[in-house]
C-alpha cells in the first residue's frame, strides 16, 4: 500500500505539489489524470527518488516505510518501479547486462542470493517472448535506436522481471500507436495481482480502456482535486479539464 500524505514539493524554488494526499491499496489500479503542468510527472519522480526535487513537507509511505529517507536504488529494492515517460538511451550498455545488474543489485540490497545466469536468461526470454521483444534487441545497447513502442515494451519487460509491488506508469501511452498500446496494456494487465498496485498517469482516457482502473484521481495545481471510480475518466473525456483548472485556484 502506498500512502502519500500532505506532500509539498518544489523544484528550483518553484512549488509544484501543494499538499497532495493519496492512498493506493494493494491490488488497486489508480489512475491519475490532469492537465499539463498539474504536477503528474513530478509526483512520479518524487516517489521514485529523483534528486532534483525538494520535498518541503509530507511523507510517502510504502507498506508503512517512509521512502523519502531512501535513495532511488533503495526504493527500487523496496519494490517501487517507475516506467518512464521517455525511457533513456544508454549507448554501450547492453540491455542484457543492464537487466542482470539491476536484478542482482536489488537482490543484494534485500539480502537475497544472486540469480544464476541460466535462470536469469530463462526468465528474460520468457518475459521478452510475451511482449514480442526479439532476442537481438536484448543484445543491443539499452533503448538505443529503439522506436517509441519498443522502448515502452522494454519498460514493461523490466517491470515484469523486477517484480515490484508498486508500479508507476508515467504517460506510458504517449508516443504509442494503437497496436503498441494494446501490447503494452496486455503486458501490464498480466502483471495485475492482489499484492501489486499501480499508479497510472495519463492525459487521456484512451489508455484506461485497456488498463481499466479501480479508482481515478484528478490532479490540478499540485493537489488531488477529485477522486472517483472509472466512470470519472469518461466524464473528463467529455468535459475536459477546464473546470478543474479553476477549482483548486
Amino acid at each position: 500500500m502506498l500512502e502519500i500524505r500532505n506532500l509539498h514539493v518544489s523544484i528550483e524554488d518553484k512549488k509544484i505539489l501543494n499538499g497532495l494526499t493519496l492512498t493506493v491499496h494493494d491490488g488497486e489500479v489508480a489512475a491519475i489524470m490532469g492537465p499539463n503542468g498539474s504536477g503528474k510527472s513530478t509526483l512520479s519522480y518524487v516517489i521514485a527518488g529523483k534528486p532534483d526535487y525538494e520535498v518541503l513537507d509530507g511523507e510517502i509511505l510504502l507498506d508503512g516505510q517512509n521512502v523519502l529517507e531512501l535513495e532511488a536504488h533503495e526504493r527500487a529494492a523496496a519494490g517501487l518501479f517507475l516506467a518512464f515517460q521517455y525511457p533513456l538511451e544508454i549507448p554501450g550498455v547492453a540491455t542484457m547486462s543492464f537487466l542482470k545488474a539491476a536484478m542482482n543489485s536489488q537482490r543484494k540490497i534485500r539480502g537475497e542470493e544472486e540469480m544464476a545466469t541460466a535462470d536469469f536468461m530463462k526468465a528474460v526470454r520468457a518475459a521478452a517472448d510475451k511482449l514480442g521483444i526479439p532476442q537481438d534487441m536484448l543484445r543491443r545497447g539499452l533503448n538505443v535506436g529503439f522506436s517509441g513502442g519498443e522502448k515502452k515494451r522494454m519498460e514493461i519487460l523490466q517491470m515484469a522481471l523486477l517484480a515490484p509491488n508498486f508500479c508507476i506508469l508515467d504517460e506510458t501511452d504517449s508516443g504509442l500507436d494503437i497496436d503498441a498500446l494494446k501490447v503494452v496494456s496486455e503486458g501490464v494487465n498480466a502483471l495485475r495481482d492482489p499484492k501489486r498496485a499501480f499508479l497510472v498517469i495519463t492525459h487521456y482516457q484512451r489508455l484506461l480502456n485497456y488498463i481499466v482502473p479501480d479508482t481515478v484521481h484528478v490532479m490540478a495545481h499540485g493537489q488531488v482535486v477529485k477522486s472517483g471510480g472509472k466512470e470519472l475518466a469518461l466524464e473528463l473525456e467529455a468535459t475536459g479539464y477546464a473546470d478543474y483548472k479553476t477549482l483548486a485556484a
Partner: peptide
C-alpha cells in the same frame, strides 16, 4: 537516475 531507479547504487 534511470539506472538507479532500477536498483543500481550510484
Amino acid at each position: 537516475f534511470y539506472l538507479m531507479a532500477r536498483g543500481l547504487p550510484r
